[in-house]
Computed example of a mutant assay.
Amino acid sequence: MDETKKFIKCLKLDHGLRYKDGNFIYTKPLTDEGQLKIEEYIKVHIYEPIEEEQSSAWDIISKRFQTSECGKPELSSDYLPREYLKLIIPVLKITYVGNPLDSFKSYAEKSDRTELKAQCQQFLAETVLVGGGLIIKNVSDFKNKSMLDVIWTINKISRWHKYKKPFFLKKALKFSELYDLDNNPLLDEKQLGDYVNQLFSHEKFSVVAYEKVIPAFARLDKQLQESLTDLYKIPADWFASISKRLVPGIASFHQEQNINDWLITIN
């Protein structure tokens, strides 16, 4: 399998997506034979707890498309707990524009209004950030120096991959309450370094953020879109893309913080 197909299949970029509890779940393949663009992306994004509830990027989807979570959602176990802090470590930015499968087009043409409305709540990921991330549980107990050590280790490994500068990892730095996105504990700098190195080597990767998603039916040809809109009175904005960053699990009690401002705050 070549590199292009590897990313499409492993990340399921050709699959439909359904919204559920601050994340997407995959449905089935809807596109094929598309154009793939892969760019290097090295920037850590931090999502820290906040006191007051605020609007979440996921609310755009739940309100516009009348999903089961209209209004204010109940925070399920799929959301990041309020006392946790999340870092995402993207290493790639991937854009994929696939062509609709014949089976998808045929289904759209034959569906009645009820079926079509349900299908209109499917999405396609057009641009995603790919890499890994870290979870700090009970962030109030995580020492500021430990957080600086985490950022320093990530930066050191990213510079090695970019400039081939040697670095050394040791077990002297100990961490507590630090986990990867699969909930595996990272107990020291060596374990953290091994994990981050896997991300930059593309040995381990997943979608850590959706930069642009589109309703799946927007991938159909314009004539078919217009005929379905007229026939079933589908709102025009159901075909509009969403270009606000969607981070799995991040709801109304976390906000993205600029890493430089955040480092100044904890120093």
Rank of each mutant, 00 (worst) to 15 (best):
F239R: 10
A218I: 04
L129N: 09
I154D: 08
H254K: 09
N197Y: 03
K105H: 08
A240D: 15
L80K: 04
I151M: 14
Q66Y: 05
V139Q: 14
D21V: 08
Y210R: 01
T127Y: 03
A216R: 05
I154S: 09
Q223G: 02
T27F: 03
L187N: 12
E39A: 01
I234N: 10
F205E: 04
G16I: 06
R159S: 12
I157Q: 07
Y96M: 04
P248Q: 07
N258V: 08
G34M: 07
I266R: 05
I250L: 02
F104Y: 10
S146V: 09
E126M: 04
D188Y: 06
C10Q: 10
P49H: 04
K43H: 02
V139C: 10
D149R: 07
S56T: 02
F123K: 02
P49N: 07
F239D: 09
A209T: 07
S140F: 12
N197K: 07
I8G: 09
I264P: 00
T31Q: 13
F123N: 00
G249E: 02
K190N: 06
P29T: 13
G16Q: 12
D188G: 05
N144K: 13
Y179L: 03
A216Q: 05
I154A: 07
I242M: 01
L75Y: 14
L11C: 03
G249T: 02
A236E: 15
K12D: 03
F217R: 08
D180Q: 01
R245Q: 15
R245E: 15
L192N: 03
S252Q: 14
Y210Q: 02
P215K: 04
L101N: 14
D180K: 00
C10P: 00
L263A: 03
Q66W: 00
I266S: 07
I61L: 15
Y41P: 00
D78R: 15
R18K: 11
Y26K: 11
N144I: 10
V97T: 14
A108C: 15
D221G: 11
K43G: 00
P81W: 07
L263Q: 08
F24A: 08
S56V: 00
A57S: 11
V207A: 01
I42D: 08
D261M: 04
T229V: 09
A251R: 05
Q255P: 00
L181M: 03
T114E: 11
L75V: 10
Y107G: 05
T114V: 11
T67V: 07
L11K: 00
P215H: 04
S252F: 06
L228G: 01
M1D: 06
L173C: 12
S140V: 12
W152L: 08
Y107N: 11
Y195F: 13
D182E: 15
H161L: 00
S111P: 01
D32M: 09
S158L: 03
